[in-house]
Design a protein around this nucleic acid. Structure first.
Length: 506
RNA sequence: GCGGCCGUGGUCCAGCCUGGCAAGAUAUUGGCCUUCCAAGCCAACGACCCGGGUUCAAAUCCCGGCGGCCGCACCA
């Protein structure tokens, strides 16, 4: 932890102004769940759409929306039912809990004890008379934690189902349909955003570790014999900070600064596709307001990796509140999942090469946690200026596009302001109209929720149909004709023009 | 799940030790005022996490639960 202050400040604003707050508040709350308010819902949607721009639309990738509840056979085949559970033992004396398989491995030198199952673990604990490694106390019977949420489908004698802990399985289950819709050509990708659930043992840090959260995932299918990415040249010159697997193993803390092209060349990143998505990822996160020098990619050590992964790089950002924080995982899932579902379902997942050979495609996956990103965006944009809190959100993400404010509420200014509001609403903008309190107070309110522009109707407006436009970040103003507002504001919000081009200086 | 600290209007916080009308700031709403950055005045709204116990009396003391933060464990 570096500074908990900014975390408190950001969550306080989030709660007060309606970005997000803890769920089930009126019943005392339950950790690991969050509810988004008006501004949070809009901001979240804007981030999601930005992700779609960077990862889906330009590449022409395919989207998908699959169920949250899945039949148990899905997770039997995928390996999640085996890997999403832990056998825990608790000490009767000091109360500490431990992973049973780790204790057995330490004592006996056996490997992969987890895979032997609950009965074997129970027997091994007894056989080797394993006691608490901290205090030597006796251990309770091992308890199994399944971190997937289980449910029953149907009324009586129903089938067991599980809530998905990742969206990825939806893409693998529907690989054949996707492949057909991609006109049976590799490479192609299926992308999905949606809720996933993980029954975390102890969720912490608010938005950073939830039991129910939104994930944005993409599975890129390719032929391992044709591993090149047609767009790699767009990002190969991009410099990234890497902590490679070797560096992690040696405890090296200073990241390697290297271009993505060099990183692939040197074998630090196993595939071009993975490197491509890491490059897009860096650009996406920069677009959300995190400077490149606060971003890095950290490799997982083999024991840290998921059961399906041959290489994983976490994309981390440096938060003032929590230090380096994972916001995305870039995993090389190989043919693990399609192979598993071919085995589980009996459906052929192979693809035919021009030379007549068949193979199971390999998969590279960038996976983002949207709720974390939303927190990162808020914290990164937080500023304090002249005793005011300001969210300097990227203007394309701000939940409200523009505030419309009459300078005072008399002499017909309110009525004129209402006309301007209608005009901007007709233009499709999200508008906040505010005539309460002094003009300064209204600017402050507007800044606090990150609204990039404020249009003010003053006495000159009544004379010549012009208004002032105020910039959230510099507090400077320009004057412009009302009739020109819709087009200019839209272009400004898209990032096509700068503030100074919105009108003549005041 | 274990340990430490904590939980009071929308938000931030005082009061708790030593039981006795729950204070302040800010926000919000209405009014007056107001020609550009949380101005001023008047008014209104609004709180002791939940449950039990002790007591004439509990925000305060005790027990249990829930929630938050930190440490340990966990985070596939």
């Amino acid at each position: 932890m570096v500074s908990i202050n900014i975390y408190d400040k950001v969550t306080e604003i989030a709660k007060r102004r309606g970005f997000f707050w803890p769920s089930f508040e009126i019943y005392g709350g339950l950790s690991g769940f969050v509810t988004y308010g008006n501004l949070g819902t809009k901001l979240k949607r804007n981030i999601e759409n930005a992700w779609r721009e960077f990862f889906v639309r330009r590449q022409g990738f395919l989207e998908l929306e699959a169920p949250i509840i899945n039949a148990s056979r899905v997770f039997e085949a995928s390996g999640h039912l085996d890997h999403f559970k832990e056998h825990m033992v608790e000490c009767t004396r000091c109360g500490r809990s431990f992973r049973a398989d780790h204790l057995i491995e330490e004592k006996t030198g056996l490997e992969n004890v987890e895979a032997m199952g609950g009965d074997a673990i129970r027997e091994l604990l007894a056989e080797h008379e394993i006691r608490c490694p901290r205090c030597g106390g006796a251990l309770k019977e091992p308890v199994m934690f399944l971190t997937m949420f289980q449910t029953t489908i149907g009324a009586t004698g129903g089938e067991v189902g599980y809530a998905r802990p990742e969206a990825a399985q939806g893409m693998f289950l529907n690989f054949r349909r996707g492949f057909q819709q991609a006109r049976e050509k590799l490479p192609f990708a299926l992308a999905q955003t949606g809720k996933v659930l993980r029954n975390e043992i102890s969720p912490r840090r608010g938005m950073l570790r939830l039991r129910e959260f939104t994930i944005m995932e993409l599975e890129l299918f390719f032929d391992p014999q044709e591993p090149s990415c047609p767009w790699f040249n767009e990002v190969s010159g991009e410099e990234v900070s890497l902590l490679t697997e070797e560096m992690e193993a040696e405890g090296e803390k200073t990241p390697l600064k290297v271009s993505l092209g060099e990183a692939v060349e040197a074998g630090h990143i196993l595939t071009e596709w993975q490197a491509y998505f890491m490059g897009v990822s860096k650009r996406f996160i920069s677009h959300l307001g995190v400077p490149p020098d606060r971003q890095r990619f950290r490799a997982h050590l083999p024991e840290e990796r998921s059961h399906y992964s041959a290489q994983t790089y976490d994309h981390e950002v440096l938060l003032e509140s929590w230090g380096w924080t994972e916001i995305a995982g870039h995993a090389y899932r190989t043919d693990y999942d399609l192979k598993a579902h071919q085995r589980g379902s009996g459906v052929d997942m192979t693809v035919l090469r021009p030379d007549g050979t068949r193979f199971i495609p390999h998969v590279v996956e960038p996976s983002f946690g949207l709720d974390r990103l939303l927190y990162v965006v808020l914290e990164s944009s937080y500023q304090r200026r002249k005793k005011r809190d300001i969210l300097a959100l990227p203007r394309s993400l701000a939940p409200i596009n523009v505030s419309v404010l009459p300078l005072v509420t008399k002499d017909g200014l309110s009525e004129k302001a209402a006309e301007v509001r209608e005009l901007l609403l007709d233009a499709g903008l999200v508008v906040a109209y505010d005539e309460s309190g002094s003009i300064g107070r209204r600017y402050a309110r507007s800044d606090e929720v990150g609204t990039p522009l404020a249009v003010t109707i003053d006495y000159d407006t009544l004379e010549n149909d012009t208004v002032t436009i105020r910039d959230r970040d510099s507090w400077s103003q320009v004057r412009q004709r009302i009739a020109d507002l819709p087009g200019l504001l839209r272009r400004y919000l898209k990032g096509e023009i700068e503030f100074s081009e919105l009108g003549s200086p005041v």
